[in-house]
Amino acid sequence: MSRIQTKFEQLKVEGKAALVPYVTAGDSHPGLTVPLMHAMVKAGADAIELGVPFSDPMADGPTIQLACERALEHNVSLDDVFGMVKEFRQTDDDTPVILMGYLNPLEAMGYDKFAEEAKASGVDGMLTVDLPPEEAEDLLTPLNNQGIDAIFLLSPTTRQHRIERIVAAGSGYLYYVSLKGVTGSNALDVDDVQKHVSNIKQYTDIPVGVGFGIKDAVTAAAVSKVSDAVVVGSVLVKMIEDNAGDDTTIINNISGLLGDMRQAMDNTL
């Protein structure tokens, strides 16, 4: 059983939703990423989405664009990201790590090599933002061969025929984008999220996570009631931006917010 599946089954038994923070690998400098990953797990994260920096992050708002730019100033490559995951795995063999990024760095490496190296370094899933299922076959084969889950997005505008196609291609979990817009956008409507998530669940048993627009413990708790995972990204990345150069403050602030979210989510049980 994959790490992702194991984690979700365990949480299901406990009746909890997963807390999944996102940070961009190598932001604000490569040395911060692995200690930050460990700190996030300690603060209550169940899995980690690790962004692969890309020069042209078309689906991201200004916060994650800047994170990519900061990481790329250090020339953080896919190989470097694998190295970080490998280092993280030296002392954490349980927490799922999902890479999130855009297709072109994978194209440049080659899909087969990507899947092999991802597996070897301890990566559990790949969310390729600009790869919808209709174009995904060439990547899905090597990912499936290596036992790496392909995570796909669903959005408020996704209609039935696409939901069916996406749940057939995806594994691990599905990522429901809670609003129309880029990452870091504002305000999420919990009732609307609930409606969409329960609709998606008619088509699949794969866990459904929700992301975009979750910035505080109250929202995280509300979303955790209607989904299997709460994904938090831009608000954490902003903490890196605001404190770049001060790793201790970054780790403390991010741990603090994740701890609050964890507590609020668990109190709703």
């Binding site: 689906a59 933002v129 600009d130 790869l131 919808p132 174009e135 796909f152 669903l154 505008t157 696409r162």
Partner: peptide
Amino acid sequence: GGRFAAETLMEA
């Protein structure tokens, strides 16, 4: 060619 876009755009 093809359609390599985020799901948020695919419907449009």
